[in-house]
Every structure is written in structure tokens, then in C-alpha cells.
């Protein structure tokens, strides 16, 4: 356990969600669930974020935005797709403007299904993301050591 797993900062992006999942994500920050217990902090800045949390499917308009935000986040970073729309497009899957889930444009690490995803499920997904963040940090360190040699 190093500090990265104790201080994951979230960036929440609403793709083309119906707001159901967004409300549940924000519910995680309220006194009932209070994710700040785990040091999780909802930041609005991709350059400060460790976990990229996306709700809603990806359409032609927001695909470049999502890619841009992902590019701006410094390593190590983890992508969490929250809700069935973010996982594979959900009920909007067949729409002409929808590309599909987040995995059509980004490498998604954690899928949190549900419509809307429950706060417990979201917290569970984020805690899984924290573990992955730690693993990515370790490989990053290994690579840096390798480079130095």
C-alpha cells in the first residue's frame, strides 16, 4: 500500500447520460455514502485526476472530448465506465448518433453495470479501480527503473 491507493482523485464526465447515473455518482459524495472516507476527492481538473469516471454512452460529439480529457490525465490513471450506457451503449445502443460504450474510444479498466448504477456498485467499482491504480503505479516504477539501467 502506497499513498496512491489512499488518495485517488476522481474526474466525473457525463457522456450522453440521462443523468440517472450522475445523480448516483454525486450521491456517493453525500453524508450517506461519503467516499471521502477513502480519500476520494471529486476534482474538476483532468490534470489532477487519477480515476476517470464516465457515465452515459459515447456519441460523435463527445468522442473527441473524452479522448482529450484522457490524454490530459497524468499516469497512472484508470477509466471506470459507470452504468449500462457507458458499458455498451445501453438502450441508446442502436441510435444513429451513438458509437456505443466508452470502450469504443478508450481502454476501459472497470465496468460498473446498472440502470442506474447503485452508489454501492459505484463505490465498489472505484475501490477496484484503486487496486488497479496501485498495480499500474508499480509497473510504472519498474519501467522507470528499467529505463535508468
Amino acid at each position: 500500500m502506497t499513498s496512491i491507493s489512499k488518495s485517488p482523485w476522481l474526474l466525473h464526465y457525463d457522456g450522453s447520460s440521462c443523468n440517472g447515473c450522475d445523480i448516483e455518482v454525486l450521491a456517493c459524495l453525500t453524508p450517506v455514502y461519503d467516499v471521502e472516507r477513502f480519500g476520494i476527492f471529486n476534482t474538476g481538473n483532468p490534470k489532477h485526476a487519477d480515476i476517470f469516471l464516465i457515465t452515459g454512452g459515447i456519441n460523435h460529439q463527445n468522442a473527441p472530448v473524452v479522448k482529450q480529457i484522457y490524454k490530459q490525465m497524468p499516469h497512472p490513471k484508470v477509466v471506470v465506465a459507470v452504468g449500462i450506457c457507458a458499458c455498451d451503449g445501453g438502450i441508446f445502443k442502436e441510435c444513429y448518433n451513438i458509437l456505443g460504450g466508452v470502450d469504443t474510444v478508450l481502454p476501459v479498466d472497470i465496468f460498473v453495470p446498472g440502470c442506474a448504477a447503485r452508489p454501492e456498485a459505484i463505490i465498489d467499482g472505484v475501490v477496484k479501480a484503486i487496486g488497479l491504480l496501485q498495480a499500474k503505479r508499480d509497473t510504472m516504477k519498474e519501467a522507470a527503473k528499467h529505463d535508468r539501467k
Binding site: 502506497t2 471521502e36 472516507r37 497524468p74 497512472p76
Partner: peptide
């Protein structure tokens, strides 16, 4: 602050965890 909002709040040493994490991140 968390107690005033009726939350449990982060651990007391959270700012230090944040600081060490920031030192470990990729430098952009």
C-alpha cells in the same frame, strides 16, 4: 469540515497521502 456537513471525513493524515501521491505521479 466533514463533521460539520454530517460526514465521517477522510483520515487525519489524508493531506500527507495526497502530497506523497502527487510526488509519485507522472510529471506533465
Amino acid at each position: 469540515s466533514a463533521r460539520m456537513q454530517g460526514r465521517k471525513g477522510p483520515p487525519l493524515l489524508q493531506p500527507f497521502y495526497d502530497l506523497f501521491k502527487l510526488f509519485a505521479k507522472e510529471v506533465v
